[in-house]
Simulated assay, not measured.
Amino acid sequence: MKTNFLKLGLALVAILTFSLGNAQQTTGDVGKGEDVSQASVLNGTIRVIDNKGTKKFLQVQNGLTILTDATPDGGYVSTWQLGGTLTNDTYITADGNAFALDGLSLETGAASTNAVDAENAQGGGATGTGWTILVRDEATGETRKILATDIIQSGQEAFTATAGQTAFPLTGAPVLPAFAQVYVYRNGAKLVAGTDYTVAASTVTLTPTAPAPNDWAVLAGDVIEVHFVK
């Protein structure tokens, strides 16, 4: 009799199944093979006995789900699977080994413009649309999400110059990147970065001091156009 109970306990422990369907199942039954399951207990505990008859219990938590089907042919079937709620901080150490997700679909939709904090993709909470980008917080290792617009920012502004004007502060005072990422045009002709203009904070300053025959001056009515990418 003890041997039979031990075999039952070991069989329950050995059934570790990960769901690969279109949607993660976190409620209901998981049948054995092709059997159709019925009512069961979600995230309950499983009682087993060891070879000395001592009662022990198995359970899951922290991001895993257990589904117990009490009505399959041949006895109880309990299935462990990925999916659930993290109840503690969780870390996986790659330690030089590859950690990857295969089979991911290619995203072709529009980037999100209304992503929210703690969004629940399974419903029941705040939701947004489109896609975001996952990043790693180097201080904590935590995975977070950011908008695509946070990766690359750009801007453009045009000015009509007065005679001799050299300073052109951008509206809204955006912090400009290095001058190599700022492109300035005078009446449609591109000026040379670091030679014809410099950049500081949110202001582009023209430096029309080139010697002849490349000398030039800012005239009244010149259109100075500034583009930047960062």
Results as ranks from 00 to 15, higher is better:
142 E>Y: 08
100 A>G: 11
118 A>T: 12
109 G>R: 08
4 N>T: 08
127 T>E: 06
156 Q>T: 13
139 A>H: 03
201 A>S: 15
224 I>E: 06
119 E>T: 14
207 T>R: 06
61 Q>D: 05
207 T>L: 09
216 W>G: 00
212 A>R: 09
129 T>E: 10
173 A>N: 14
48 V>Y: 03
191 L>S: 03
102 D>M: 07
214 N>Q: 13
12 L>K: 02
72 P>M: 01
175 V>E: 09
207 T>M: 10
112 S>R: 04
79 T>K: 06
79 T>H: 01
115 A>K: 09
80 W>I: 11
16 L>P: 02
121 A>K: 03
39 A>C: 02
28 G>Q: 01
157 E>F: 08
26 T>W: 01
219 L>W: 02
223 V>D: 14
88 N>A: 15
168 F>G: 12
171 T>R: 07
1 M>Q: 10
214 N>I: 15
55 K>Y: 03
198 T>D: 13
145 K>P: 13
219 L>T: 03
167 A>P: 01
26 T>Q: 04
83 G>Y: 00
61 Q>M: 02
208 P>L: 08
44 G>A: 04
103 G>I: 06
19 S>I: 06
206 L>Q: 10
224 I>A: 07
65 T>S: 15
207 T>I: 12
205 T>A: 12
205 T>I: 02
153 Q>S: 10
45 T>I: 05
94 A>K: 09
203 T>Y: 12
203 T>V: 10
67 L>T: 05
164 G>W: 10
43 N>L: 01
227 H>F: 15
168 F>T: 10
226 V>H: 10
47 R>M: 13
58 L>P: 00
213 P>Y: 02
182 V>N: 12
107 E>N: 09
34 E>M: 05
174 P>S: 04
68 T>P: 00
205 T>E: 05
140 T>Q: 07
7 K>Q: 13
15 I>K: 12
229 V>F: 06
109 G>Q: 10
